[in-house]
Amino acid sequence: MASSDYLLLLLADSNLPTGSFVASAGLESYVTHGFFSSRPVNSALDSTVSFVSDSVSSYAHSSLPFVTDTHAVIHALAQREGADDTALVEQALEDIRQLDELYHAMTVNHVARRASKAQGVALLTLYSKGFSRPPNITVTEQCPRETRMAMLVDKLKLAIRREESHGHLPICWAVLAGALGLTLERSQYLHLFLHARSLLSASVRLNTLGPYASQQLLLHAISPLIEAATARSSHLRTGLQLPTLLPTSDQPAVQDAEEFDETTDGPAVTWPLGEILAARHDLQHSRIFNS
């Protein structure tokens, strides 16, 4: 398996067909509704940083718990001893569907739902088409992790096609990152980085920022924002009790259900204005993004 650094380089590639280039996560609507001021000179920079800050904080608080729990399920599936791959995969799939269902119930905004599902499914396709082993590269012994992950992703894609599951972005991201063996910390961090970077790409397409200014912000402003958002939200969980994460004779419990307090440890939206603006996306007279 490729090193973790090499995986980061691959996953951070802005050319990956992840669907994020058609999503502005409410930025276009924010600009149209008059919340973005481009004068005086520094205002465009300030307005962009404000939007990214509020958007990333809220997204981190609402989506990272799902990345974390899904990653834990994938990790457990990869580690668990047992010969019956199918049974283990079925249980993990059931847990992932529960996570997907809860994320769906918590993402009420129909525009965000639509974008999240489109991007989630694109990530699963990326895994099976872009990250599976090509036919000319053979290995003498197939590792059990790869077998289970391929099986899981296929079953999840089928469930989504049959509309038995939704395929939301944070869940599918954690499936992809976990299946590739990326650590939880890196999966969380990269998820927020990709969210923030796609907002800056959207700014350039909307012409509210130039490409150089966008790069300046990525280096000097976005980095501390992502650090702070990760620090605030990386410990959050969904609160769902997932059978894959229950203790077994050889492994301790991944989370203690008794300890969970949803008011301090659970997912939440922290920017209600962002929800309203994102939901109003389709009302714009002219628009270039899908969200």
Binding site: S62, E101, L102, M106, A228, G266, A268, T270, P272
Partner: peptide, 20 residues
Amino acid sequence: KRIVKDVLLLQDEELDVKPL
């Protein structure tokens, strides 16, 4: 079946995001 779970949290961010 849980159709909607709408959760809103409003609080001041206390973490430092210097230099912002």
